[in-house]
Design a protein around this nucleic acid. Structure first.
Length: 394
RNA sequence: GCGUCGGUGGUAGAGUGGUCAAUUACAUCAGACUGUAAAUCUGACGCCUUCGGGCUACGCAGGUUCAAAUCCUGCCCGGCGCA
């Protein structure tokens, strides 16, 4: 993997560049399409291609459980397995330490509202993941079987899954975890980062895979900066910024980190992808973003338009025969009316998920593409202002 | 015509004297969702409300009872059986 910065935006941390992988080039900033189980939910690989997606990210934990990393390895890697021939990434399974741990069965999400109270993480109940210094013990959400993930086993699994870019094994913490826990967890994630590097070096002797280290630290400036310094000093090929935020401080926290991380390496903001967050994070120096929002929102009937989100299941769309979004060039908008989409959703037809995912992914991919263009031609701040004024006008 | 079983909120269908404005599911109306536990989840769902409560309701009309969706009588409607 090779990263090159083409242009930096004066007065901000934003930059446009290119990542070269053996499976193709990614023009950054870029939105990474999520295909957790080696499929972008509701879409064929051909549809993902035609949307202009540059890179697909799968999940190590999910593929490890099903169909198993040996099968994916035999298939020639998850890209070949799913017929995606472009650049690929895998997440390490570190997110599942949170989603199947503290977050499981609770209302807590990694992006919390500002008034979310900080609590003792150990009070979380119903968790399927338990974190120790050795690694994370998971109780499979599929069949209840127990599995231990360590930095070493995550590297091995990701090696077999065979993506171009992979992540160090980390602990994604909850926004409800107190400072003391975040600090302790951060030290652990740092140890895991070193172990990930060492394990990966032993596997990948001729540098096939790029390994990204993950910066944690929760919502605390000193921890975030410490993480950026320590993780940033390790010989990773790029960096992921992960963990918990609040809706309002993503850009701030990302800025703390990117001011410190080495400039010449790509930065991936893990799991973030609402429009405002994308603008803010690019401005704060991020190059890559993956997010399930476009596809999950789509499947749940929430569709992106330049005038904000709309819920296509609302009664007012039943007889609205206008196009979903005027001027949108996606397949869904060029062929179908809001009324038809509303009908498919109400009838629980599978095509509803497909058409909605196509639109939302097109919207998000195109948005990040335009953000990139606006960096190159110097119109970023105007574009951001125009877009956000209209999108968030309510 | 006789016998028999049954008529409950938008629908299906619980409930068989008080804890019932009435279980549940679906439908409906909204909302949430940010490295996918997610084609998922949450709330509302008779009318009014100063949110304490008030009012009208379980085919219709009477009745018994302190109290009825629940018991009795008549009527109306439907399924089935016999003529």
């Amino acid at each position: 993997m090779n990263f090159r910065i083409e242009k930096k935006l004066e007065g901000t941390l934003a930059r446009a560049g290119q990542i070269e992988t053996k499976n193709g080039v990614i023009k950054t900033p870029a939105f990474v399409t999520v295909g957790t189980k080696a499929t972008v939910k509701a879409l064929t690989a051909e549809q993902v291609r035609s949307l202009g997606a540059q890179v697909v990210l799968a999940n190590t934990y999910h593929l490890y459980l099903q169909p198993g990393t040996d099968i994916v390895e035999k298939a020639g890697g998850f890209g070949k397995f799913m017929d995606w021939h472009g650049p690929t990434m895998t997440d390490s399974g570190g997110f599942q330490a949170f989603s199947l741990g503290a977050a499981f069965g609770s209302a807590v999400s990694k992006v919390a509202s500002a008034d979310t109270p900080v609590e003792d993480i150990s009070l979380s109940i119903g968790q399927l993941a338990n974190v120790t210094d050795e690694g994370v013990t998971f109780k499979s959400h599929i069949d209840g079987s127990m599995h231990l993930f360590t930095p070493e086993s995550s590297m091995k699994a990701q090696w077999k899954i065979g993506a171009d870019m992979i992540f160090a094994f980390d602990e994604c913490t909850s926004p409800t975890a107190p400072y003391e826990y975040q600090k302790k967890s951060l030290a652990r994630t740092y140890e895991w980062a070193k172990r990930s590097l060492e394990a990966h070096e032993a596997l990948d002797t001729d540098k096939q895979q790029a390994l990204f280290g993950v910066v944690q630290g929760g919502r605390y400036q000193d921890l975030r900066e410490e993480a950026a310094r320590t993780i940033g000093a390790l010989p990773f090929d790029g960096f992921g910024i992960g963990g918990s935020f609040t809706k309002d401080d993503i850009a701030t926290a990302v800025g703390w980190v990117n001011k410190i991380l080495p400039e010449e390496k790509p930065r991936h903001l893990l799991g973030i992808g609402e429009p405002r967050d994308l603008f803010d994070a690019v401005e704060a120096g991020c190059d890559l973003f993956d997010c399930i929002a476009p596809t999950r929102m789509g499947r749940h009937g929430t569709l992106y338009t330049h005038d904000g989100r709309l819920n296509i299941r609302n009664a007012k769309f039943i007889d609205d025969f206008s196009t979903l979004e005027e001027g949108c060039s996606c397949y869904t908008c060029s062929h179908h009316s809001r009324a038809y989409l509303a009908h498919l959703f109400r009838a629980d037809e599978m095509t509803a998920a497909t058409l909605a995912s196509i639109h939302n992914l097109h919207f998000t991919l195109r948005l990040v593409e335009r953000i990139r263009e606006s960096i190159l031609d110097g119109t970023f701040s105007q574009f951001k202002e125009d877009f956000c004024t209209r999108y968030y006008k309510k």
